[in-house]
Amino acid sequence: MTAPRIFLIHATPVAVEPINQAFARLWPEAELANLLEDALSRDLAAEGRLTAALRERFLALARYADGAGADGILFTCSAFGEAIEQCQQALSIPVLKPNQAMIEEAVAQARRIAILASFEPSIGSMSEEFHAHAAAVGKSLQLSAFVCPEAMQALRAGDAPRHDALLAEMAARIEGVDIICFAQFSMVSALPAVRAVSAVPVLATTDSAVLGMRQALTAQRR
């Protein structure tokens, strides 16, 4: 079987390195192609909602990747759930949301789930995905959200240690949950620091996404 070509579509540059590193660890045979349109996250924040124009831009990126020979597409920004669903409906190849595999894993393990984010627009989209999956599998869910925008500011300024420390400080204050889920690929560097202060399991999206894409392509090729 030839190496699959996976297109990674990014709405922010800080998501690029974490997911590429995860593929290098977990699926080095995959051929990766990175598409970055970093105005998407800025425009979403400015609009305050996912507009039709933003959805069309996502669809154009997905169609470009499909035309360039993608075997699968993985979006890496968690704030654009509805736009990614539109891409899934339009294409015949596997198209995965960044958090899809992690959400399935978390709901299978826990009922009280905390979402930890550094980009506030991710919360709405992720919450909808959590509740939709929980309803689909017949589970009740108690969801809470915690946002630390200062961590994203630190990361964009190149200060990863401060980014990690800020997220760990917030995670240490989270109580009454069974599991903590990172909302974004860009947060993965904080995983050791957050796990060190948390009394509950902490899931990050990158590893789950890589394994989820591999499973989807394996199933399609059978």
Rank of each mutant, 00 (worst) to 15 (best):
S92I: 02
E105V: 13
E129N: 09
A114L: 10
I84F: 07
I179E: 05
P28G: 00
V16R: 01
L143Y: 04
I73Y: 07
R25S: 13
H10R: 02
I84R: 07
C77M: 07
V188D: 09
R222G: 08
Q88R: 15
E169H: 08
P18G: 10
S186D: 09
T2R: 14
L141T: 06
F75M: 12
M187N: 06
E47C: 12
R63N: 13
L50S: 02
F182H: 06
A193T: 04
A134T: 00
A52F: 03
R49Q: 10
T218V: 10
L155H: 08
L141W: 05
A168D: 03
V137C: 13
V188I: 11
Q88S: 04
A172T: 03
Q184H: 14
A39W: 11
A172L: 11
L96H: 08
R156I: 12
I123P: 05
A83D: 07
A196P: 08
T76E: 01
I9H: 08
Q142V: 04
P4I: 08
Q153H: 13
D164C: 12
A60H: 11
A70H: 04
S186Q: 11
M213R: 05
Y64G: 02
R63G: 02
R5N: 08
V200A: 09
L96N: 07
S208F: 11
N34V: 15
L155K: 12
R214Q: 15
E17R: 14
P192K: 03
G138C: 09
T51E: 05
L40F: 10
S125K: 03
E47W: 04
Q109F: 11
I19H: 00
I115M: 15
V200G: 09
V200K: 08
R57D: 07
A53E: 14
A68W: 11
A216C: 08
Q86C: 10
H133S: 03
V197A: 01
A114M: 01
F58W: 15
M1Q: 07
I103H: 07
E104G: 14
S144Y: 06
A15R: 00
P121R: 00
D164W: 00
M213Q: 05
T76F: 04
Q21D: 12
L143F: 07
L217K: 06
A65G: 05
V202H: 01
V95W: 00
A209R: 10
P94A: 11
A114V: 07
S118V: 00
V147H: 01
P149F: 00
E104A: 13
L203M: 14
I73K: 00
G67T: 08
S144F: 05
A151N: 00
P94N: 13
M126Q: 13
M170A: 05
I115V: 14
G176N: 15
I93L: 15
Q88A: 09
F185W: 04
D159L: 06
L59I: 04
F119Q: 00
F80P: 06
Q153A: 15
